[in-house]
């Protein structure tokens, strides 16, 4: 159970050999990315990133970033791609480019069992979401700019506050919510999952069409050869592509 922190890679974030592909992920978004007991970042996103690298036959370095700064870091050339379950949105497309989607995301509202909350009623109570995420922009549309929306730097922190009872509900992405509900039987999904047509893609810099195309080819490759299905089944029991 050695817990060497991910710091080292970041500390030495000096220019890496040109061929090494630097991929950013988050590290607080289980089961897509989380820091395990050994201090390594693991999860679905990381496995997909590694599979893509193997397909492209490129050396890869995984860098953990805080969500808030993950896009600015890409734009500023701190790494070359973001594989962090990032929703493809019009706003983000102004700043970065996306590959084809690698899975579809839904939103859910989580609350304590028997809370009597409804999706339409979230504006009346304190609702949490992760800062700078698709969930927070959706929640903001629902509750308005002046609603009681609490923003957290990580999804994990918002789960913790929901559990503690600081907030009545949170808007979360679907798969992480299911994962969390497994060990939190007192909580439930309120109503149906919310389909906002959210597609998850890999972000690259706007001037980096070459990498985007290479990633798209590799993505098709790992779906076709069954690697994707295998990884997905391992995490979710089903192919989420």
């Amino acid at each position: 159970m050695k817990k060497t922190l991910i710091a080292l890679a970041l500390l030495a974030a000096s220019p890496v050999a040109a061929e090494t592909l630097r991929i950013a992920t988050e590290g607080a978004f289980p089961p897509f990315s989380e820091i395990n007991a050994n201090g390594e970042v693991v999860g679905f996103d990381i496995d997909i990133a590694k599979a893509l690298c193997a397909k492209m036959e490129r050396e890869c370095e995984i860098i953990a970033m805080d969500w808030d700064g993950i896009i600015p870091g890409l734009v500023n050339d701190k790494y070359d791609a973001i594989v962090a379950s990032m929703s493809i949105t019009e706003e983000r497309k102004q700043t970065v480019d996306f590959t084809n989607p690698y899975y579809s995301n839904y939103l859910v509202l989580l609350a304590k069992k028997g809370s009597g909350l409804t999706v339409d009623g979230i504006a009346q109570q304190a609702v949490g979401a992760q800062r700078a995420s698709i969930s927070s922009s959706w929640a903001e549309e629902q509750v308005g700019a002046r609603g009681d929306l609490r923003l957290y730097d990580t999804l994990t922190a918002s789960f913790t506050d929901l559990e503690a009872g600081r907030i009545d509900s949170i808007v979360s992405d679907y798969f992480p919510a299911l994962d969390w509900l497994k060990d939190h039987p007192d909580f439930e999904v309120v109503g149906d999952r919310i389909d906002i047509g959210d597609q998850i893609g890999i972000a690259v810099r706007k001037d980096d069409a070459e990498l985007r195309d290479a990633l798209n080819v590799a993505l098709e490759g790992i779906v076709a050869d069954g690697t994707y299905g295998q990884i997905s089944t391992g995490y979710f029991g089903t192919d989420i592509h």
């Binding site: 808030d68 700078a132 927070s136 609490r150 923003l151």
Partner: peptide, 17 residues
């Protein structure tokens, strides 16, 4: 989670970087 000037600023920043 307090929406002081800095909190609001970071939310606005998240919209357009």
């Amino acid at each position: 989670t307090v929406m002081d000037l800095m909190g609001q600023t970071r939310s606005v920043f998240a919209r357009g970087y």
